[in-house]
Design a protein around this nucleic acid. Structure first.
Length: 810
RNA sequence: GCGAGAGUGGCGGAAUUGGUAGACGCACUGGCCUUAGGAGCCAGCGGACUAGCGCCGUAGGGGUUCGAGUCCCCUCUCUCGCACCA
């Protein structure tokens, strides 16, 4: 069988696309803009991972498909090259990121990305490490600072001893550093934060109105973590007031003790002198615990009594105040009322320290004493004075809250689990935070005209664990002049989290030619928000959340007129190999280049898309890519004219072939729209099988097949398109239309069931009435046999599909 | 524990609204072709058995229905997210 030379064909079209400018777009002169975005990679020294290829190809198919549908598709690419990934790699191999990164980018682009047939407009590339780019990253910082969305505070932060820097909560995975897997510890440090919590409610609510993969939305909802309840004011006996947050104000009568987080400032004031030594001791121990230790302790409760008593505002009970690390300073007010009867954590604590347990909610009106575990279900209030008998959660809570509210002792309150984004990093390889400290003027943002604050080249860029960035060691960088008063000043030496670089990159692509603004208002109006964003779900609460937040901030500051950056986000699946995750330690990492060299990018793309449902991922098996190349060879043979021959203009006289063609077009169209690439490919295979078996060839069929193949296997599609005599690109050729009438069968195969079991099949003209079918069914010998000695009970008739006869013995 | 998703041949995976389970492909088996083939072509390929015009079969158990992979209830397993968040 004829085989085409994939290396030659693909090289030819790579060159032709550049030469013809096929993938370049005049952004101002388009009728139907479609912004097709894929998550830009960090250019690792190891090169492009097969997971990247999978992600990009799935996105590229959408771009190419939309182009065939007639859209003007913007499909840009860039490099997320700042950050600890690059820096850690450089450190480990004794190299310098400033020298390593450009080489990596070059390798990614020239040797890898350009060989997988992506419809990328390279004239719009962004590189987050170039001063022209990070100038505007710094501008974002300054803008956020000026508008009150950035601030500095001293607080316990996540410290990675491996990377020697602080991390955002989102970058701590199971108590470990997302980058280096070191166990993260707590440190009290002054850091820069972005006020992500300012938009907690909007970030949550708007999830209901955007077209995103459900699992991504779920991850964000969990992360934002809305809790509805009340903030209640308690009093320390002979001492100050303090507030607690509770989601169960209905259980206020069941509060038998109070717990403060060990870091709670009020503890210093209220702890009785004889308990101070205990508290100091406990605080020290708690501070030493890492996140992992806290979790590994398996929730075994610890704590100390402060000697102080609190007064319960609902009944005047005096209850002891404890300090315990199961209460976190960062959530709510850092203090809680403990209701051991109805909260398992409080219950465990009460049992351990022998504190009273008082039931105030009963599922059945009975009072069970003593309970074996906390009951947090529905029920009616008991032991709750005037509120006894009320359904606890839905009526009791509001009633008690309202009563206290009248006395100014409570208010309804919603709390979010989301924390402000800690953005400063004590590292080298990032955009310096553009702030100057002046003895006279205080904290001064670097004026826009002075941006970028250029990252100096440091020979020794190792983080030193001092709590300061290595930039602090560069005297020339550190000392500055105050932009306001001209006096001596110093620079902020921390760099910003690399997630700030990626939170805005998609605004830049359409505006890369403007050097005096981060994004042009007219371009932005035309091209944003992004129409389709395809990427990995691992960024659900990182990049995707940060960029949504930044969008809201930019909107509030008046720079953009939309509130959500991506109209649609689709989370692709993950590729495994022979059922196991690919990882360096397993030694089963796949090198895409090998397969591309052996079988071609088209076959590789096709196989990646065929392995499984794109949204669920797939299992890479040896041999699949080769099989896909032979499919492309078969397709080539099946639809191209043989030497010296012409294709007949139409070969659709046969109803069967016409049916196959039109229903394939219809189905493939639907498949591409819902990312079912695997079934789209399967349908193309079926069509090719039909054509081969029946030796049908025609221009109409071939052109339609090529167009359907084009998004999946662009190089070979272009080659075949040219062989059919076309001079332009197939991607300007339009998507094939189908004739709905041709997708309908003139005869249909009825399934005949007796009592729901298939007993026969019957070929009949389509569209028959029940009355016309019945005699033929009954006359069918295969059916008649099953009806002997039976009485008909019921007949079910599904047009053009099935007849089910329900019978019983006579 | 909470939330989301999933469980179908030897394998990857298909199956609009409930309507022929296993499309498509891999692997395997037999045959053809070939000097040769990690090539190509044809055919077979869920299971058991007493070998059928029959029976069983979509994690397990129950239910709804003329009819269930699909809907409902219970159980089990796996993956992902969150997790001492009051």
């Amino acid at each position: 069988m004829a085989r085409y030379d994939q290396a030659a064909v693909e090289a030819k079209w790579r060159a032709k696309w550049v030469e013809r400018g096929t993938d370049r777009l005049d952004l101002d002169r388009v009728a139907k803009p479609f912004y097709n975005l894929m998550m830009f990679p960090y250019p690792s020294a190891e090169g492009l991972h097969v997971g990247n290829v999978f992600a990009f190809v799935g996105s590229d198919i959408q771009g190419r498909y939309h182009r065939l549908l007639g859209y003007d598709v913007l499909e840009p690419m860039g490099f997320d090259a700042f950050g600890m990934h690059s820096e850690n790699f450089a450190l480990k191999h004794g190299r310098h990121p400033a020298e390593m990164v450009p080489k990596n980018i070059d390798n990614f682009r020239e040797n890898q990305l350009k060989k997988i047939g992506l419809m990328l407009d390279w004239s719009r590339q962004v590189d987050t490490t170039s001063p022209e780019y990070y100038r505007w990253t710094q501008w974002m910082f300054v803008t956020l600072l000026k508008n009150g969305y950035a601030y500095k505070k001293k607080a316990p932060v996540n410290w990675c001893p491996g990377c020697k820097t602080v991390l955002a909560a989102e970058q701590v995975i199971d108590g470990e550093c997302e980058r280096c897997s070191s166990v993260v510890t707590k440190k009290d440090m002054e850091q820069w934060y972005f006020r992500t919590t300012a938009f907690a409610q909007e970030l949550l609510e708007e999830l209901d109105h955007i077209d995103w993969s459900e699992r991504t939305k779920t991850a964000q909802r969990n992360w934002i973590g809305r809790s509805q309840g009340a903030e209640v004011t308690f009093r320390v006996e002979n001492g100050p007031d303090f507030k607690v947050f509770t989601t169960r104000p209905d259980t206020l009568y069941g509060a038998t003790y109070m717990v403060f987080s060990p870091e709670h400032p009020l503890l210093d004031e209220i702890t009785r002198p004889e308990k101070r030594a205990d508290l100091a001791d406990y605080r020290e121990k708690a501070a030493r615990l890492s996140e992992v230790d806290r979790q590994a302790e398996n929730r075994d409760k610890t704590g100390v009594f402060t000697g102080a008593l609190a007064v319960n505002p609902v009944n005047g009970d005096k209850i002891p105040i404890w300090a315990a690390d199961y209460v976190l300073m960062g959530y709510g007010t850092g203090a809680i009322m403990a209701v051991p009867a109805h909260d398992q954590r409080d219950f465990d604590f009460a049992v351990k320290f022998n504190l009273p347990i008082r039931q105030v909610v009963s599922p059945d009106g009975q009072i069970s004493d003593p309970p074996a575990e906390a009951y947090s279900g529905e029920g009616r209030l008991v032991n709750s004075g005037p509120f006894d008998g009320l359904p606890a959660k839905e009526e009791g809570g509001p009633a008690i809250t309202n009563k206290l509210k009248e006395q100014g002792l409570a208010e309804f309150k919603i709390n979010y689990r989301l924390r402000d984004w800690c953005v400063s990093r004590q590292r080298y390889w990032g955009p310096p935070i553009p702030v100057i400290y002046c003895d006279q003027c205080g904290l001064v943002p670097v004026p826009e005209k002075d941006l970028p604050v250029v990252l100096p080249y440091l020979e020794d860029y190792k983080p030193d664990g001092s709590g300061f960035s290595p930039l602090r060691r560069d005297e020339a960088f550190f000392h500055a002049t105050c932009p306001t008063c001209g006096g001596p000043a110093t620079r902020e030496t921390d760099v910003s989290d690399n997630f700030l670089c990626s939170a805005w990159y998609f605004y830049r692509y359409p505006s890369t030619e403007f050097s005096d603004r981060p994004f042009d208002p007219i371009r932005t109006k035309k091209w944003l928000p992004v129409d389709l964003y395809v990427g990995g779900n691992e960024h659900a609460v990182l990049h995707l959340l940060y960029s949504r937040w930044l969008c809201k901030a930019l909107n509030q500051c008046g720079f953009i007129d939309f509130n959500e950056p991506y109209k649609r986000f689709v989370a692709h699946g993950m590729i495994v190999r022979d059922g196991a995750k690919m990882s360096k330690s397993r030694g089963n990492v796949l090198n895409p280049d090998e397969y591309i060299n052996a079988f071609g990018a088209d076959a590789f793309r096709m196989y990646l898309m065929f392995m499984g449902a794109y949204l669920e991922g797939g299992d890479f098996r040896e041999g699949g890519v080769k099989a896909m190349k032979s499919f492309l060879d078969r397709l080539w043979t099946a639809i191209l004219p043989e030497d010296g021959q012409q294709l007949p203009e139409t070969g659709l006289q046969e109803a069967e072939t016409s049916y196959w063609l039109h229903s394939t077009i219809k189905a493939v169209t639907a498949d591409l729209a819902r990312f079912s690439y695997n079934t789209a490919i399967a349908r193309l295979m079926e069509l090719i099988n039909h054509l081969t078996k029946n030796q049908v060839k025609s221009r109409v069929i071939s052109e339609a097949v090529i167009k359907m193949l084009a998004p999946l296997a662009p190089h070979v599609a272009e080659e075949m398109w040219e062989l059919l005599g076309h001079s332009g690109t197939v991607f300007n050729g339009g998507w094939p239309a189908w004739d709905e009438a041709a997708t309908l069968r003139t005869t249909v195969e009825y399934v005949i069931q007796i009592n729901g079991k298939v007993r026969g099949k019957l070929e009949l003209p389509a569209g028959l009435e029940e009355a016309a079918i019945e005699p033929q069914v009954l006359a069918n010998p295969a059916v008649a046999r099953w009806l002997e000695g039976q009485t008909m009970v019921k007949k079910i008739y599904v047009p053009d599909k099935l007849v089910n006869l329900v019978v019983k013995p006579t």
